[in-house]
Design a protein around this nucleic acid. Structure first.
Ligand code: MN
Ligand code: MN
Ligand code: ZN
Ligand code: ZN
Lengths: 147, 147
DNA sequence: TCCTTAGTGAGAATCATTCTCAGATGAACG
DNA sequence: CGTTCATCTGAGAATGATTCTCACTAAGGA
């Protein structure tokens, strides 16, 4: 996972939405998610889906994003200008994300929360129940483009 | 820093706001920040400050939070019900936070982003420019209270 | 004390996200 | 295939956190 190009695997609308119902709108949304490639906001997804099918409401997009996130195929990866950023996430093993602030590309990274950190938390009397880790940076192309 | 009780150090309104002007409202806000102890939302801070001085506008509290955050004495530590959570943060060394979801207590933790993680990011062609790490859990008292 | 400018309070404005509701349609079942 | 009905959908209203505007006040250095 570490440093690998967080591959989209299947991308069948089918799987993206888990067990939920497969509508025309959701198929178009799944297609738009694929076309975007990297991280995106709900609004950007809404615009992208408009190119393949008109008239899909913004509420439907928000609901679809929630469904995909619940299904584990989408993960929130930070925020941009007040809107939450989402990206495709091949579930399975526990990992985190490195997001290119230039183009939105996302790669999975290994979880850095190790035993030593957990131990120091326990020493402080805490029981750790969850954690968030996200890295930001520039991908090879964006680093190059910046000169 | 690791596992230590993220001590408030001085807490003089003076230092909390960095170089900015010291008004009556901000002195009351600084006092309220101290009284809250743990993590809080802007709205909670607004309510808390009302007890020591009436009539302070919510916009003033938001501006004060922004000023303290800019000064490095406050840090965002996640969110609760849609509102950003802030907590006192003794600046200085690079560290992250472990927040008790029960009572809002916050302790500093060592940064787990190590060379190996950076190296794998570089292997993927990325230049890492920033990162966010936050742990959530229950402090000793809240763990006990939960039976 | 005077002057300049940052800070203040009220309320309007933004704006992402959620909710409401009546109508459409997946998909399971016979 | 039709029937059925819970799930989806679209439009627009509602929500709610945060920011902005603006006229006014008051730090605090000179
Ligand atoms: Mn992932
Ligand atoms: Mn801190
Ligand atoms: Zn992890
Ligand atoms: Zn760090």
């Amino acid at each position: 996972m570490s440093g690998q190009t967080h591959a989209p695997a299947a991308l069948l609308a089918n799987e993206l939405f888990g067990g939920s119902r497969l509508s025309v709108a959701r198929r178009a949304i799944a297609e738009a998610v694929r076309s975007l490639g990297g991280a995106f906001t709900a609004e950007e997804l809404h615009e992208a889906v408009a190119s393949s099918r008109e008239g899909i409401g913004v509420a439907t997009v928000y609901r679809a994003v929630a469904a995909m996130t619940a299904a584990g195929s989408l993960a929130p990866v930070g925020s941009r200008k007040g809107s939450t950023l989402y990206a495709l996430c091949a579930g399975g093993d526990h990992h985190h994300h490195l997001v290119c602030t230039g183009c939105g590309t996302v790669v999975g990274i290994a979880c850095p929360v190790d035993g030593s950190l957990m131990r120091s938390a326990e020493d402080a009397g805490y029981t750790v129940t969850a954690h968030e880790v996200t890295l930001y940076g520039l991908c090879a192309a964006c680093t190059r483009a910046r000169d």
